[in-house]
Amino acid sequence: MRLFLPLVITFICGIVMILHFFIPHRPISTIGDGLTDWYMIVASAAIFLGAANLVQVHVHRINTKARNWKYSPVVLIGFIAMMATGLLWGVEETLPFDYMFQTMIVPMGATMFSLLAFFVASAAFRAFRASNWRATLLLASAFIVMLGRVPIGGMIWKQIPIISEWMMQVPNMAGQRAVMIGAALGVVATSLRMIFGIERSYLGGAD
């Protein structure tokens, strides 16, 4: 029963959602929309679960003086400060919550995002090392594409931007679409395995 019930629920929900895509008629449409709404409700309610887990984990770390526990009060203070200002004064512009969001969270997010430039540089340095003929081909392609995207590329030779665009639109696009078609088939196969209860490891059941 522990496995049977979830498998039945998965089967029914899976079949209804597939039918929902093709059949706009009631009751399939109503049930399909209802299931989507239920997911939204469950996901929204689960935010409290996440917040509770965050508090529980960090309080536990402080209580047990676990390794690196000194970071936990920072998390808790930040969490409580944001929650309290939001609850007390609201979240509209110019209020404390929005002030903290705009002057702390947004710059910190931007900082993390800007780190990407340096990570791209270090990853590109490794990836573009011409260690064999395939890596050399990659390096040459990348060089042409990058050169074609900046004005100096066209100034060196006016065909460079055209070649760069062709490389992006033809071989690159073909490769991307091949990956996407393969992934789409993977989605179909995975969904079938789950709907028909063949894949049940996510339930902790036997293979």
Partner: peptide, 9 residues
């Protein structure tokens, strides 16, 4: 890559 993620299990 792509489909291999779904093939893993």
């Amino acid at each position: 890559i792509g489909e291999e993620l779904y093939a893993a299990s």
